[in-house]
Design a protein around this nucleic acid. Structure first.
Lengths: 239, 239
DNA sequence: CGCACGGTTGACCTGTATCAAGCCGGGTGG
DNA sequence: CCACCCGGCTTGATACAGGTCAACCGTGCG
């Protein structure tokens, strides 16, 4: 476990518009800067927190890429999400002050540690921060509704197409290409997230490639025809 | 849409320990009582809110039983949860100030309307209420992780067994029998929630009945052997 | 009473899992 | 620097859980 005490300021972080509410005054910004205690680096493959660990803080991802997984006592496990820069992890820990999932870095990562009692304290004073915290939690609930829809009612091709479109859309919002991406996770992790086996993930990639929708070269994905993928997810609408 | 203005007090509601934080002072309790504007009754089959409607309030269920569903433009829909007395619905609406799912009453119901800006206002003053709101949202996130695990990695029998055990456990917490229950939803709604077809739900019920684990008579379910159900969900642990 | 909706059951089909073999590419050690 | 190894990926053959389609039943309501 690697902890470093690099003091940082949200006020001049380039991810601010992802983590923080808009339209704070100078004074409020300074108040929020106090919130971020330290940054912490997490090496690829290491965990940010584990199921059962005491919850104290949320984490804002500055760089890197994470997966979160829940696991049953009998060894089954399920990837519940993939998180990238600007996203917040750890919300699951609030209820029982224990984390209920593992957060594992899929590449070397750096996170801002946000002690939760400080968040609560400051959000009592700054209304827009309070609202922001509520929105972040609500957004996570809505995201999970989407995953439930995917797992409950889509077939393999639809799931993978939806997954790729979602990833590329989030990357695009961060200034990356909307047609080129590098997967940070294995086929098995994708499969776990999408409720399918790694072989099925692989076959479905191959099928998409055969149909000329994507080019797949290991973890390098080029999306040639995003509309075709959209039509797979939602056949009715896209003619 | 049925709206009634019955003024009520949380402070002497018998569901208080489900909706409200513990250990409030007299004065705080009075403050919280101001929160609940009105109650609203919802007839069986009617909606409390719809996808796309403006979000203003959360709802605490006083009596009755709801389902929430998300739907795609192309007509697919997915039940994301079943809610009973003491539970809070509407959290999905906070992010975009629009509801993103439908809440439908499965039997005549009564809810307390909790205007969200009042919740935010009062939770700035009462720390334990603030913490309580955060916990409710976090609990919903954790619940959905559980559903993702179910949908992503369990087989039909495991899903239905987990579903029954969850329902009966929540009913028991409300003072009902731990072996007897009446399903408020159709086989199709159960199937949607569990990511399986209604025929499979029906067959799986029949199989459980053949194996002597439950007695099924339409929507009346008697759980004869809860341990056997637990063993289905989690074979490793329960020998 | 009869209709309609929800539920059950059967026969058959298909999508995905499973099992197995082989490939590719990157990192390590000689 | 090259050879080897190993983890991750692909592909094929086969199996099976659950989906689909269809017929029928039961029950509660108008």
């Amino acid at each position: 476990m690697n902890k470093e005490s690099i003091k940082v300021a949200c006020s001049n972080c380039n991810l601010r518009e992802l983590c923080m509410p808009m339209g704070l005054s100078e004074q409020e910004l300074r108040r929020v800067d106090e919130l971020v205690a330290v940054r912490r680096t997490v090496k690829r493959g290491a965990s940010l927190f584990h199921n059962g660990e005491k919850f104290t803080s949320l984490y804002a991802i500055r760089t890197g890429f994470f997966k979160t997984t829940v696991n049953t006592e009998d060894g089954r496990d399920q990837v519940t999400g993939f998180q990238m820069a600007g996203e917040i992890i750890g919300l699951d820990g609030i209820v029982n002050e224990l984390h209920t999932c593992d957060a594992i870095a899929l590449e070397d990562a750096e996170v801002c540690v946000l002690p939760f009692d400080r968040i609560e304290e400051i959000s009592r004073e700054i209304n827009s921060l309070q609202r922001h915290v509520h929105k972040i939690m609500s957004r996570e609930i809505v995201r999970e509704h989407g995953v439930m829809l995917l797992l409950g009612s889509m077939r393999a091709e639809e799931r993978l197409a939806a997954f790729l479109l979602n990833l590329v859309q989030r990357l695009q919002a961060r200034g990356f290409s909307k047609s080129e991406l590098i997967l940070r996770m294995t086929r098995e992790e994708i499969g776990s997230y999408l409720g399918m086996k790694l072989e099925t993930v692989s076959r479905t990639f191959s099928k998409f490639a055969d149909d000329g929708m994507v080019e797949v070269k290991q973890r390098h994905i080029h999306i040639c025809d995003a509309d075709a993928l959209k039509r797979i997810v939602n056949p009715q609408i896209c003619q």
